[in-house]
Amino acid sequence: MLIKKPADLRYSETTPKSVYMNRRKFLASVPAAALAGRELLSPSRGLATTKLPDLVKSPLSTDEKQNTLDQVTHYNNYYEFGTQKDQPAKYAANFKTDPWTVSVEGEVEKKRKFSMDEILKLAPLEERIYRHRCVERWSIVVPWIGYSLSALLKAVGPTSKAKYVAFETYWDLKQMPMATPERSGLQYPYVEGLRLDEAMHPLALLCVGMFGETLPPQDGAPVRLVVPWKYGFKSIKSIVKIKLVTSEPPTTWNISNAHEYGFYSNVNPNVDHPRWSQAKETRLPSPFANRPTQIFNGYGDQVASLYAGMDLKKNY
């Protein structure tokens, strides 16, 4: 079994040899001229990501053993790039994320379009190591980079009518040929939502990177949400639109199957998915579903008060 160590990871531990090796192979196959582009290959890995300097270590981080970059970039649910876990790594490889703008609109004082540069500079970037729990019963630990979503929302000023926040993922059939209902069973563009107080909670992360660098495309580049107390599909990827609204917005998995995926989708061992139990989870890469699932994914101390008095079985 895995031996849990404190998270004082050395770089060689987070970057498995195969990635170094792949990178070498990759570099050998690419003419030097192609590498002279604006987005240089990260010196440490085979991914087209860039280093994010001056990261603040967050007190909100867990000290559990982190998963490796290789695991987190080769096992993805990103249906726009295919419904099999190994497909996003292949089919998102050339996803174009520059230029990129995020439009913030709806019930706000100052509607605004943010460029990626503006988003990167809006608040100090923190490294936050969170547990991430998928509705499919697996969990991982990822060193995300970003800042509280509340920083962005405060910058635009929600009006008193704003009660919910609706998010939308980029959608482009040219780059995402699998993103049709026929090919993946979901409607596009992918949409998600939070209650305004959930979105303003400090744990809700506007995420621009992981493992010290910008996000790889298969993990939701260039900017995504990370809501660590909810099932992974709430943490919407590649955001292009954030709209503050007055009533509960539609969400993609709920549209696909309302009976199985609720608006809240808080991690909860006591509310089973209709097709499988949520009582236990598998901490990858362990093969056993032997970890008791924690209510709110272990973030109950911070977020349980958001749901005081609510029936969590009804509001699943």
Binding site: M1, L2, N67, D70, Q71, V72, H74, Y75, K85, D86, E136, W138, I140, T282, L284, P285, P287, F288
Partner: peptide, 14 residues
């Protein structure tokens, strides 16, 4: 066996 399973994606049992 752990390493061998590790070669079968991040979620070997799945």
């Amino acid at each position: 066996i752990e390493d061998a399973l590790g070669n079968l994606t991040a979620n070997p049992l799945e």
